[in-house]
Amino acid sequence: MIITAVLTLGLIGFTFAVLLAFLSKKLKVETDPKVDQVNEILPNINCGACGFSGCNPFAEAVVKEGKLFNGCLPGGSQINEEIAKILGITATKSKVEKIVVCRCQAEVGEKKISTTYKGPKTCKASHIVGGAIDCTWGCLGFGDCVKVCPTGALVLKNKRIEVIFDKCIGCGNCVTECPRDLFEYAPFKEKMKLCYVACSNNEKVLGVKAVCSRGCIGCTLCTKVEDSPYEMKGNLSYVNYPEAKNHQSLDAGKNKCPTKCILDLNV
């Protein structure tokens, strides 16, 4: 009885094993070793949260395009960072051409909140009804962007988004996700200190002051320093990065700002 069972199942196993061994040689697909490396660290549950049909297609696409897309959701930021390492894209290597800045850094207390919002706690939802803060241009602080950042470079602190520039790989998920388009690409220059204007409010002085103490009031003082890389678009200041030749001019403009809304990008 036992012998029959062992022989039967053993024989079946043997037959299938031979078949599998043969087929795996015959139908072998040559793969990029990087794809195998990525596949190794993926959770391999083929959930499809990344938008691809499985872990292998995701690994292939990531290696082929050299970017993380939406990252691996169940893998988390730890696995995404490791994938970024394999692909050679990290903020400290020169492969990264651009990172993002968040053009609103006002915290609770600096941006006025005189409404009570009781809807779903997401930026997208609150934006539809006009927002949960007084400023109709600024950061709503619910962290939709934090959820889509594959490397955990975005942190929500006191209803303000802090960008950990070392972790940013410039994937652009936050740019797409933010309903108020607060994220802007900035070039990453390892050797040069850069600044950015942390405000997106394009209204005039009184309009800005009524809703926030850290906003750009359109005073144009930053544009008037020597070799200024700052330029006005309407009542809002922008850094023209290709024009920024040295960090002294950036610093000069930054020091002139009365509301201190120009901040350092990297140090």
Binding site: G13, F16, L20, A21, S24
Partner: peptide, 10 residues
């Protein structure tokens, strides 16, 4: 790797 699924299933 090639017989992973078969072995686990058995």
């Amino acid at each position: 790797n090639q017989v992973r699924i078969a072995v686990y299933t058995v």
